[in-house]
Design a protein around this nucleic acid. Structure first.
Length: 472
DNA sequence: TAGCTCGTTGGACAA
DNA sequence: TTTGTCCAACGAGCT
């Protein structure tokens, strides 16, 4: 009997519990471009990634005898219609955790059950379901360290499942909703085509994710605990966009890293640090699940009274374009714009700069990241911005203001990262690279690089004063 | 219950 | 040059 697999942010074949559950049956594997469900529309970089991940999945399904079908519309109508037309019994999918998504899925599940189908959801996105990790008092965690400790003590995440070797595609029913071609979704940018840097940097899809994981295990995991802080070092896993769309699962990453340690190919210190980064992703989903307003409202309501300055469009444009006059900020914002990715430490520094030095509401920056990051994640992105702002759970203290010059000198001392992304400064000696405005005039002459857009010391004091107004 | 310890990622300044 | 201390107070989570 025909089964329906509703694919969402789980665009892979391996470690896919929903797929594994129905792999022996004639299968309709369908992706729905959702309309009218109230979910946040994807940003530009994410749309680019989605296009290629879907193309890769279609190819992988076809190679095993399956097929990917795409439809567009409101899944609350489409899924029941499709199930009816296909006379399907089982309808399976992987769980999601945002509020509109959950509401949508619950409605569909009820509708399917009412018409005699057998809907079933699985965990494909997380190591631990958010409701299973509880404090001693039975509530949700608000601090990472005890959260992660409790999660780890609750047991090892399940081992990954193999990909099904063979699939059987069921025919698309005659009276089912019409299918659309991937190209007709217009997920790729055309005028202008700004995705050249993304194409050069990434291979979306399951095969690309596995290749990236292998490269990370070979070259990145060793020395990860310290190296991950240096933006020019090869220790970033760069797996976050793959995780975002489910090209690969966190269980696969967790166990692959553990196996590297067991085989003596990596130290447990590095492996546990990497696993803890997966833990931060889990913590973000835990927060989003228990505090649905995380993406739009201050987690700490005291910040509702914070005196953000009105957005200065000119200053914002300089931040977005990487023309602030602070090399590390500009390098980061250009890396983001060009590749759809930004090194973690530099994310914190550019976020701190926008929020604290420019005194801008964190939601403004969160929105830009949502549009430009391939890994823009509904949980991690807002949770991390709130963490930097100090408004979030387990947040940085208000007096922690990153100094882009000191951060640059500390984590990119040889200037490799800066010279790559701010080539107009490449000829400056290291001594002045992170603060070019202090270089001798003869060296500065002819540099096409802006003067600093603000005074670091004064803006820091202004931020501390602003934060003092909402301190108890 | 009440007390205790602790909190991913920093900077400025003094010694 | 390096190291230590302070910058708030609070509330989370445990015992």
């Amino acid at each position: 009997m025909t089964a329906i697999l509703w694919l969402r942010d789980d665009l892979r074949l391996a470690d896919h519990p929903a797929l594994a559950a129905v792999a022996g049956e004639p299968l309709i594997a369908v992706y729905v471009v959702e309309e009218r469900t109230g979910r946040r529309p994807l940003g530009g970089a994410s749309r680019w990634w989605l296009h290629h991940a879907l193309a890769a999945l279609a190819e992988a399904l076809a190679a095993r005898g399956g097929r990917l079908d795409i439809v567009r519309g409101d899944p609350r109508a489409l899924l029941p219609d499709l199930a009816r037309a296909a006379q399907a019994r089982r309808v399976v999918w992987s769980r999601r955790y945002d509020v509109p998504g959950r509401a949508c899925d619950e409605a569909i599940k009820a509708e399917l059950k009412a018409h005699g189908h057998a809907p079933e959801s699985f965990n494909a996105a997380l190591l631990y379901e958010p409701w299973t990790i509880k404090t001693g008092a039975g509530g949700p965690f608000k601090v990472f360290t005890p959260f992660w400790k409790a999660a780890r003590l609750s047991g090892a995440p399940p081992a990954p499942l193999p990909a099904p070797a063979r699939l059987e595609a069921a025919r698309w029913p005659k009276d089912a909703p019409p299918r659309v071609a991937l190209d007709a979704l217009r997920l790729l940018p055309t005028k202008p085509d700004w995705a050249g840097g993304l194409r050069a940097a990434w291979t979306p899809g399951e095969a690309g994710a596995q290749a990236r994981l292998n490269a990370f295990l070979d070259e990145g995991l060793n020395g990860y605990a310290d190296g991950r802080d240096r933006p020019a070092a090869p220790h970033s896993s760069r797996l976050s966009p793959h995780l975002r769309f489910g090209d690969i699962s966190p269980r696969q990453l967790f166990h692959a890293a553990a196996q590297a340690a067991e085989a003596g190919e990596a130290t447990w210190r590095d492996v546990e640090k990497f696993q803890a980064e997966l833990g931060w992703r889990e913590f973000s989903y835990h927060l989003l699940f228990h505090w649905p307003e995380l993406a739009t409202q201050n987690f700490n309501p005291r910040f509702d009274a914070f005196p953000w300055t009105a957005p200065d469009e000119d200053a914002l444009a300089r931040w977005r374009a990487g023309r602030t006059g602070f090399p590390l900020i500009d390098a980061g914002m250009r890396e983001l714009w060009t590749t759809g990715f930004l090194h973690n430490r530099v994310r914190m520094v550019v976020a701190s700069f926008l929020i604290k030095n420019m005194l801008t509401d964190w939601r403004v920056g969160e929105d830009w990241f949502w549009d430009t990051l391939c890994d823009a994640d509904p949980a991690s992105n807002p949770a991390s911005w709130q963490w930097v702002a100090g408004s979030g759970a387990d947040a940085a203290p208000y007096f922690r203001v990153f100094n882009p010059v000191l951060q640059g000198e500390k984590f990119d001392p040889a200037g490799e990262y800066l010279r790559r992304w701010v080539p107009e400064l490449a000829a400056l000696p290291d001594k002045w690279l992170h603060k070019p405005w202090t270089a001798p005039p003869t060296l500065r002459q002819g540099l096409d690089y802006p003067a600093p857009m603000l005074d670091l010391g004064a803006s820091r004091e202004r931020a501390l004063a602003a934060f003092a107004t909402i301190s108890p």
